[in-house]
Design a protein around this nucleic acid. Structure first.
Length: 974
RNA sequence: GGGUGCUUAGCUCAGCGGUAGAGCGUCGCCCUUACAAGGCGGUGGUCGUAGGUUCGAUCCCUACAGCACCCACCA
């Protein structure tokens, strides 16, 4: 083995060998254990969040595989409709083209091409992380099999009445030109204004109000006002309810209505109602039967008569914006001067005109929540459009069949409420159930070209025909189509296909094998359905609604099963200061840069590459140079993975500190060198197991500690406490195996007792091999590399560590007596070391060692460990001082009643030792006082559990023993 | 407005009813033949504030303060 651990060398070969060996595929033996990879965007690249999440999944998968489970890690990628389409549109923009220049078919073809080019980037990055996933079953949400599942689900739900098409107010992204779901809209606080506008009463009565003042943040929408609402109990306006108001600028007259929704005390207590462009107003419009004046085009300009004609001329799919009541913009009173203006330009002009007319009463600054598209940052425009929805809210359909709440939403709630699906940490249950309790119907149609095209056709009368293809749609229709059929232009929300992931990837709905584009079998429902439900879903809280809930809905509905038994919500990865990682802040980390390392200049170039604004570039460059003056050191995959494990508590964020990762690289190096030590102490060839149990206490102790550690690790796997699990293995490996057992083995290996030496050699080998197995799920590369050498010694020349069983605690025999012996030894040695260190005795200098008092067991132990004490304590052979004999002045440590002494002569300052003793005595006196305080309290003795009282009594006894010995020592010093 | 977290050593975090822990940092001594990416030893905390429950509270309860995040949203 090389002298130090070099991750790059080790990592380069192992992954390919594992994958080629077929070790990532289900074994076909044992109980099924399945994990679904949240499919990343096919054209994406790996970020820290992915790396963390995938490390978690990989640890679970590797662990369970070693435990003998029939393990499937189902991988694949997502077509990510909007995101992917946008990337390709941006590419076209460079050529000064739009998707419309290409046309639908050519554009979609181009996206496929881009998918082929970049689709392997992220999967190759996953391989660098070490993800032991079954790539032979890799899927893509738009591959034929999954597309078939999407189609069947759409058709089945449609035929069950659970998918419907409706003209509804939806969130419209005017930049992307598509509807988006509620979840894809973020409300962002922005500085704006509140404008108060005067609306005059038509034919005011003498002595009554002749106008109302409405307050609005969006004055341009007044062109579409349908009413002004006041609160029913608002005395100020009571008399005006039912009267008409003259809408400024348009001249239309609109009614004053009353509605509970209005807050009397906010603003003037009068609200302008624009049913076609505001969700609350829409609802109020429905309650009061108000007209819906649609005043915007799909790119958020004020409609013109021209647009109107265009829109009105097309039935069905593309005639998307339709007023139910009016035919032209002029008809609804939009003056020609506003027609065709962008919404913000219109706002300026409307305000100017209102001011001109003396209708603008007040302008004041106002902070408001602006709905912004998650995907384009465009301000969302609520828009009345024809869209497809999944019914999630009706209890029963008109024809008596179960509605969406009953058929889809409620089962999804019940499975979680009943505990059939468990969230880890469990408080996410509340988030999940509260969202489902308040859910709205799901808008699933998107006006994009990249995605699953909706399997619906329209005839010339606008009738809808749904089927697998046009022929099937015709066949299953109950009415004869009028004229030709035309397929719906829309595609489905990306999350629609993601919702099916748990069962579509297993081959549903096909009866036989499902093949991919290359003709390879990727799934077979009849066989693979054993992997449903999967064991655990590892995912971020940000997609509980988008994905988790919808998987539960769809999987439960179509298979009757839950998609997974547990949902482990992983933490969000942030930078070392707890800041969100973002490119514009310059605090992102590329996991591959951590693995491979990167020099400062390439890192600066990379970090600023995609930043267009000079100020931001400058800021980012500054930050990168400050944070990484020497670039990023290569820490390797294993150290990165160990860091993720060590940080994965139940906390909802983890702050990634490179310092910490470097610490775990040191751990890898430690393991590497421990292995070197073991191997260089073994003779050539295979090592036969000695007859009988391990000879020395040290061996039996380390085996006992191994058992305890493994038991803890097993438990932490059950509860997903990767931090504890990693820490337990870290501490065992470093603080016990390396610090103590390896050191203790040295005198044994080099001593005269050949039997003890042989036994120790074998124990070193066996314990090392067990540790490698136990650590393999966390740090697969280094453990595999070392294991190859270790395996030869054990006669396991074939195969890979991946295929070894995980070392189970219950297969190991504990020896508590040996543990007590070694604890005693550690105390003695620590005492000696402390004296040496505090008295500044050179570590190289061998010193005399005297022993006094103590009992028979101390004598036996000293005899037994004499060589180890001398070797590790750098002392001469221990000498006992008989009770009552003269003692030289010495520094002492106390272990029970035993005094371990280093004579002062020429080594130690008497005063310093006295001071040291005094300090120790004081400390123990304080402890004793605390104990006495407790035991002196009758209530404590009466109420505390018996074992706590006993324990307290034991402690006071022990402290007193130590105190007595220390006092005696102090007295001897004079 | 509804919900969920967090506040413990200089930093980042575990612990969660019964002697305050880890990593990193820091200080001292050592290149001791597995490892200086190391060894040995040390320093460092009235566990956000105020009450309460309890024999006993960092841990449970209540209030408050500060910091995050999610959902909904008053024009």
């Amino acid at each position: 083995m090389e002298k130090s651990f070099e991750p790059a060398q080790i990592e380069s070969t192992w992954y390919a060998r594992w994958e080629a060996s077929g070790a990532f595929k289900p074994s076909g033996k044992g109980d099924p254990y399945c994990i679904l990879l949240p499919p990343p965007n096919v054209t994406g690249t790996l970020h820290m969040g992915h790396a963390f999440q995938q490390t978690v999944m990989d640890m679970l998968v590797r662990y369970q595989r070693m435990r003998g489970m029939n393990t499937l890690w189902q991988v694949g990628t997502d077509h990510a409709g909007i995101a992917t389409q946008k990337i390709v549109e941006n590419q076209l923009a460079v050529e000064d083209k739009t998707r419309h220049d290409l046309g639908r078919d050519a554009f979609v073809e181009r996206v496929w091409k881009w998918k082929e080019e970049s689709g392997s980037t992220i999967t190759n990055q996953m391989r660098r992380i070490g993800a032991a996933a079954d790539w032979s079953r890799e899927r893509f949400t738009m591959d034929p099999g999954l597309s078939a599942a999407v189609q069947k689900v759409f058709i089945d739900w449609y035929r069950a009445g659970l998918i419907y098409r409706g003209n509804r107010l939806v969130n419209w992204d005017p930049v992307l030109g598509t509807a988006v779901s509620d979840l894809e809209v973020n409300n962002v606080e922005r500085d704006g204004h509140m404008w108060s506008i005067r609306y005059d009463v038509v034919d005011p009565q003498p002595g009554e109000l002749d106008h109302l003042v409405v307050a609005t943040t969006r004055p341009e929408t007044m062109l579409g006002d349908a009413a002004v609402a006041v609160h029913p109990e608002d005395e100020r306006y009571k008399k005006l309810v039912g009267k008409q108001l003259r809408l400024p600028l348009t001249g239309r007259s609109i009614p004053v209505i009353e509605d509970d929704y209005v807050d009397k005390d906010f603003g003037t207590g009068c609200v302008k109602i624009t049913p076609a462009h505001d969700f609350n107003d829409y609802a109020m419009g429905q309650r009061h039967g108000l007209a819906q004046y649609n005043i915007f085009t799909l790119d958020a300009k004020i409609v013109s008569d021209k647009d109107w004609a265009v829109n009105a001329s097309k039935p069905g799919g593309s005639g998307r914006v339709r007023s139910k009541y009016f035919d032209t913009a002029t008809d609804i009173g939009i003056p020609a001067k506003y027609q065709g203006l962008d919404r913000y330009d219109a706002r300026k002009i409307v305000l100017a005109d209102l001011k001109e007319l003396d209708r603008l009463v007040e302008t004041k600054p106002h902070k408001l929540q602006v709905p912004v598209s998650d995907r384009s940052d465009a301000v969302i425009e609520p828009m009345l459009t024809d869209q497809w929805f999944v019914d999630l809210t009706s209890d029963m359909l008109a024809d008596g069949r179960p509605g969406g709440r009953q058929a889809i939403t409620q089962p999804a709630l019940d499975t979680v409420r009943s505990g059939e699906i468990k969230f880890v940490p469990e408080n996410w249950t509340t988030t999940y159930t509260q969202w489902l309790d308040n859910i709205q119907d799901w808008c699933i149609s998107r006006q994009l070209w990249w995605g699953h095209r909706i399997p619906a056709w329209y005839d010339e009368a606008g009738n809808i025909f749904v089927g697998e293809d046009e022929a099937d749609a015709r066949k299953s229709a109950t009415i004869a189509p009028v004229g030709a059929l035309r397929q719906d232009d829309d595609v489905l929300d990306t999350w629609f296909s993601s919702a099916l992931w748990p069962f579509s990837t297993l081959g549903w709905p096909a009866n036989g094998p499902v093949k991919n584009e290359r003709g390879e079998v990727v799934a077979n429902w009849e066989q693979d359905k054993i992997f449903l439900p999967s064991a655990v879903l590892v995912t971020g809280f940000d997609i509980i609604f988008f994905w988790v809930a919808r998987m539960v809905m769809a999987t439960k509905y179509f298979t009757g099963q839950v998609p997974f038994r547990e949902v482990y919500i992983n933490a969000i990865v942030r930078d070392a200061e707890g800041q969100k990682m973002s490119k514009s802040k310059g605090n992102t980390l590329d996991p591959l840069d951590l693995i491979d390392g990167i020099e400062l200049e390439p890192l600066v170039a990379k970090s600023t590459k995609s930043l267009l604004i000079p100020q931001v570039r400058e800021k980012v460059e500054k930050r990168v140079r400050k944070d990484y003056p020497d670039g990023i050191p290569a820490i390797g995959t294993d150290a990165l993975r160990f860091t993720f494990a060590a940080l994965a508590s139940y906390s909802r964020t983890i702050n990634f500190d490179i310092k910490r990762a470097e610490g775990y690289k040191a751990f890898c190096n430690k393991l590497w060198n421990a292995a070197r030590f073991v191997l260089m102490n073994l003779p050539e060839g295979e090592i036969a197991a000695p007859a009988g149990s391990p000879v020395t206490e040290a061996e039996r102790w380390i085996i006992t500690r191994l058992k305890q550690t493994l038991g803890e690790v097993e438990q932490h796997f059950v509860t997903y406490r990767f931090d504890h699990l990693a820490q337990a293995l870290y501490e065992f490996t470093w603080n016990e195996l390396c610090d103590w057992f390896l050191e203790l083995s040295k005198p044994a290996l080099n001593g005269d007792d050949a039997i003890a030496a042989a036994s120790t050699r074998h124990t070193l080998l066996v314990v090392l091999e067990s540790v490698l197995r136990a650590l393999h799920p966390i740090i697969p590369f280094i453990t595999e590399e070392i294991w190859q050498s270790v395996a030869l010694k054990l006669g396991l020349s074939e195969g890979s560590l991946m295929q070894r069983p995980w070392p189970r605690a219950d297969e190991i025999v504990a020896d508590d007596a040996a543990t007590a012996e070694i604890e005693w030894f550690k105390n003695v040695l620590s005492g000696i070391r402390r004296i040496r260190s505090e008295m500044n005795i050179s570590p190289a200098k061998a010193i005399p060692l005297l022993l006094a008092d103590g009992d028979a067991s101390d004598r036996a132990r000293v005899a037994k460990f004499a060589a180890q004490i001398a070797f590790l304590g750098r002392t001469e052979a221990p000498q006992w001082i008989n009770s009552g004999a003269d003692e030289p002045a010495a520094a002492a440590a106390v272990v029970g009643t035993l005094r371990v002494m280093i004579p002062l002569a020429g080594l130690i300052d008497l005063g310093a030792e006295k001071a040291r003793l005094a300090k120790e005595i004081t400390r123990i006196e304080v402890e004793i006082k605390k104990c006495e305080g407790k035991l002196g309290n009758a209530n404590f003795v009466a109420n505390a559990p018996a074992e706590v009282v006993t324990q307290e009594r034991q402690r006071i006894t022990d402290w007193n023993t130590t105190l007595t010995a220390l006092r005696e020592q102090a007295q001897k010093l004079g």
